[in-house]
Design a protein around this nucleic acid. Structure first.
Lengths: 199, 199, 199, 199
DNA sequence: AATGAATGAGTCTTCATTCAT
DNA sequence: TATGAATGAAGACTCATTCAT
């Protein structure tokens, strides 16, 4: 019992330390030794839990994405209008990113080092998220909420791009961006005006 | 003269090779030796023109941005409506990115390694571009083209984010994204509907 | 009692596992963990019985040599001619090697790692074996069985070398060497023809 | 010119240093850094000439064997009796081993680390040497020099084993073995007495 | 100016050994 | 006694950079 807790504790500490270091330095500048130090474990211990630096990075991405998905999915109300759904997703997304800035940063950086296999997994993940947004929009069109002329793919792209445009600077900027929630509402107002049949 | 030409020829070849390699491998996986080989110069020659690998990377970013700015600025008609200006900027941007995919890729990747100085230069650059967009929108509001209620900063963010959402996959995706120009028009239709006073 | 048995059982299992692993991988490529796994004990347990990997290796050599000596000595008839003794030693040696191939392999490999102390113990062991052969030959000369002109040291060297030439490939070769016993008889025929006064 | 000389000079120095270190410590205990130090080059320079530590070791084996073969082959008189040929090979072998003790030591040690490919090349090499000896013996039998009853394979094995029995201790023994040449003659006397039809 | 051989600082990774349980 | 999680010393290897030619 105690052991299990300790074990996962150590694993968790390594992950958290890695998120910190990867997010501030990027994959290559991150040193395994520094991660170990911050996690307060021996260098070798990192390799007890992860077979390599790459595997540690990928594991962070993997579990980070899952965590994100669970987080968003669980909180998303089921039976509301498409308009409200888009608003909710946007707000949850922003809140998540701000809450887990470092994790978000890791997720957004260089993925050059990985095998084709992992890269295509990553792409698939993104496509799934994109498809979810597109589906919300499609259902909005079906329900007459959103204008008929709207191309769902283009609309989803505006939505995801818009979110990226908002959180990107927030995550990478040295100084904290202020009033993000207000800005988000204003962005949503514009987007929805562009989408809706009867704004 | 001939010499000068040869020299700058070499410098140019190094830059082009570096763009190729940096874009396909990222900064750290790019090897100076490979760049030299592709440029068909000796490894030492790279250091005749650039004091370090980092400086070469930064120079590419620097000149790439200048090139982008000149390219867009020069082609942008002066006396047209805000609506047309936004459309033009979007189209020119897309065309530029597709034309200089590799350069774009380099511009979009990891900047973790650089000193505060360079990073803030990069931020300033982006802010300038952002401000230009915001100014177009402001003038649109002033001229009554764009709705009064629109927050210019939020609108500019939607615009830039939207562009990022469009070209990101185009640049990083393995398979070429089709119909980008069509998609752009549909995205613009949505955005402008959201912005304009009398769409 | 039961405990003692269990303990020595464990010790024995570790030795047997170690022989297997050392013989197939050599000292350095052999991992303590693998030995422990094959012995079906914990990694730490190995260190309950042997103070280090080197000590385990040396213990195998030590006990292996003792085992060999006892094996040969016990089976060697006392009152027979030198000729017959040489034949017997040769046959017993071959049989032992084939029976304990892995152990033999361990005995025959790299001893570079050990302290001077252990290396000289090893040398002493070999010299003793060599001396035993030489004594058989000397007695053969004394009894008129073997030619007067024969140099006993040289003869012993031919004998031991010959045995090495026979079993070396048998132990290290990937494919099992066939007809080793026949070949040994033919080798003995040659050697004895060379040694004996009245072949 | 100068450059070529320098280059091969460095490569040669690395090989010689490696022979020294590999022979005294074995493959695993040999450190690349020590080899570099003894060769008086930087650690990285070793990797300019050899792609890995293993490759360096294999190259030594490869070129060492070739050197040995050339050395023996070139000096071996063509048109002499089988008896004289065996004597000559034995003497040349001994002389070579004593001259290149360290190289010989390397050749005789652990080959566990290598891929199947290299190991079978090594086996082939040995088989060729063995076959050469066997052929000398066969021709001796054909010419009536050597007894009809002699099994050529067994005889070749006695010969090669005998040589191993002589040079092994000479190479690995801490103290120089004396009178090796005398001992060899006495061994040859025994062997030839055992082989020849009319000794 | 151009080159590429030479270099060694810097890192990931392995694994024998320890020690708390 | 038995264990295996934890450790860090040690070492192969990489590659940006230098500098003699």
């Amino acid at each position: 019992m105690t052991k299990d807790v300790l074990l996962s504790d150590k694993r968790q500490r390594i992950i958290e330390a890695a998120v910190k270091v990867f997010s501030s330095k990027g994959f290559h500048e991150a040193k395994v030794e520094e991660i170990a130090q911050i996690a307060d474990v021996g260098k070798g211990t990192v390799y007890e839990y992860f077979s390599s630096k790459v595997e540690l990075f990928q594991e962070i991405l993997r579990s980070g994405m899952e965590f994100y998905n669970k987080n968003i999915t669980e909180q998303l109300s089921a039976s509301i209008s498409a308009t409200e759904k888009l608003k909710q997703v946007a707000r949850l997304h922003l809140r998540f990113i701000l809450e887990y800035k470092d994790l978000a940063k890791v997720t957004m950086t260089e993925h050059a080092h990985f095998g084709r296999e992992f890269r295509s997994w990553l792409m698939k993940m993104r496509e799934e998220k994109f498809a979810a947004i597109e589906n919300i929009i499609k259902s909005g069109i079906d329900r007459g909420e959103i204008r008929n002329e709207v191309n769902s793919r283009a609309a989803a792209m505006v939505f995801t791009g818009m979110m990226g445009g908002l959180v990107g600077p927030a995550v990478f900027g040295d100084e904290g961006v202020q009033n993000l929630e207000d800005t988000l509402e204003q962005m949503l107002e514009i987007l929805l005006k562009g989408l809706l049949a009867n704004p």
